[in-house]
Simulated assay, not measured.
Amino acid sequence: MNTFTFDEFASEVKKSLEKNILPPFKISDVMDMKTTRGAYKGISILKDNIGPAFNLSEMYEYMSDKQIEEIDFDNIAKEMIAMTLNNLSNVKSSKAYLEDIKSDIKDRKNLLLVPLNSFDVENYGNEIPTEQVADINFACALNSNDRIILLTNKLLQSMNISFDKVYDMAKNNVEPHIFMSLDKNADSELTMIAITNSEHNFGANVLSRVDLLEEIIKEYNIENPAIIPSSKQDVILIDLNSNFGYGIALDDITGMIQAVNLNRDAVKPSEILSNNLYLIRDGQLEIATDKNLELDNNKDEIELDM
């Protein structure tokens, strides 16, 4: 357990950075930072307002078993500065940075739809423009050089690019990839099709493309389809007319989804997408309700080992 507060730790890190840094680099304030993987408190080493961010929240937790007097803050600062200098060739001016992003957007191939959960939406507020499908919001990002750069309102406005245009381009990049299937075509009594994308990177964005889901439904001869949002990375397409749907109610299915989401060994909290079950009705994604869900409960009840 820490014998010092986060504010004390962050203050010492900033003091050491300011003592060791040289122009033209500057140290930012400690601030809330947001990524697609979650929020944290961080600090940046900047040149021309561009530079890497360091996760102070994570560093603080890592040193939780130490006394503050035992921590070599000068060494921490020097390592952070060295990491920044080692990447100096990648640090560009704001203008060059924007030009690179604009070029990537025009190129289209690196555009990615990122599904957000309710916590993400609350966390980002009005900073990130989104498109809502059922109750799931999709943001646009650039997947470039192993980095996910969310496209903010401010960033898009600075480049005079509309979100609607970028969203349509990113949506066209959605390419579902099936990585596991149990289905009637393979003589299985339980129909489950696990869908992501080729990189298993925000593959739940297939929920934005009902047309592609309908193609998979047709290919696998799914009679009564429903979709489980297993995480931001993938979804599971099921057939409620297979053994999955016999003898159970909607509450049973959503209860199972919630139980899995509460299991941190199964899904990281930042990866949770939704506790709902989804249906496709008239070409639209909908949240399953007792009114629009068709379950054949006249069959013999079958216990499912999920």
Results as ranks from 00 to 15, higher is better:
49 N>D: 15
302 I>C: 08
52 P>Y: 09
97 Y>R: 08
264 R>C: 09
66 K>P: 02
79 E>P: 02
151 L>C: 06
271 E>C: 04
2 N>G: 05
141 A>N: 00
295 L>T: 02
209 R>K: 10
279 L>D: 03
264 R>D: 15
96 A>Y: 05
28 S>D: 11
222 I>E: 00
162 S>N: 09
202 F>Q: 07
204 A>P: 09
63 M>G: 03
156 L>P: 00
223 E>A: 05
79 E>M: 13
304 L>M: 09
90 N>T: 11
82 A>V: 05
37 R>N: 11
124 Y>M: 04
230 S>P: 02
10 A>T: 12
216 I>A: 01
48 D>Q: 09
165 K>H: 14
100 D>A: 09
92 K>A: 07
158 S>C: 10
276 N>Y: 07
136 I>C: 06
279 L>N: 00
97 Y>A: 07
172 N>L: 14
263 N>V: 06
98 L>P: 00
275 N>L: 09
282 D>G: 07
214 E>Q: 03
210 V>L: 02
77 A>E: 06
79 E>A: 13
226 A>G: 10
20 N>D: 14
225 P>R: 03
287 I>V: 15
108 R>H: 12
229 P>R: 05
142 L>R: 01
16 S>E: 13
136 I>N: 10
197 N>I: 03
284 Q>W: 04
249 A>G: 04
136 I>R: 13
63 M>H: 03
211 D>M: 00
77 A>D: 10
292 N>I: 10
12 E>G: 03
208 S>A: 15
279 L>C: 07
146 D>M: 10
149 I>E: 15
2 N>T: 08
24 P>T: 08
93 S>L: 14
272 I>P: 01
